[in-house]
Design a protein around this nucleic acid. Structure first.
Length: 113
DNA sequence: AACTTGACGAGGG
DNA sequence: CCCCTCGCCAAGT
């Protein structure tokens, strides 16, 4: 269902540079019958217009499953945006996980220190 | 229609 | 922290 994809693509395109989102969060935001699995599935269908590389798993790492794409590619793309990864291949979601304005409270949201 | 797979997530040992 | 299991929805066979 491409219409389902557009909801995901439309949201992923909102992700600013230097930030990332998780499959579960995207699914959580869209809600209407989406799950992390479904989002991930749709991500692999994402057109070049979609910054798919800004979508990672809840562990802050690039799963990319089975060498569907060159490993390091997603991680490198994110590093080029200023995101720092551990030697284990994980980034701090509490610092890089982006949240859509529409979900933010009236005031600026403060991250848990 | 039923079974199996998949770029995921949360819980238990 | 690492490994395994169950749940979720969609697509392919």
């Amino acid at each position: 269902m491409k219409l389902l994809c557009e909801k995901v693509y439309n949201l992923v395109r909102q992700i600013p540079r230097g930030k990332v989102m998780t499959y579960g969060q995207i699914a959580e935001i869209l809600g209407e019958g989406y799950t992390a699995r479904t989002v991930g599935y749709i991500m692999k269908l994402s057109p070049p217009d979609v910054p798919w590389h800004r979508v990672i798993n809840a562990k802050g790492g690039c799963s990319t499953g089975k060498l569907t794409i060159p490993i390091n590619l997603q991680q490198k793309l994110l590093e080029q945006e200023g995101i720092q990864f551990n030697k284990k291949g994980f980034c701090d979601l509490s610092k890089y996980k982006w949240i859509p304005r529409r979900l933010l409270p009236d005031k600026n949201s403060s991250l848990p220190g």
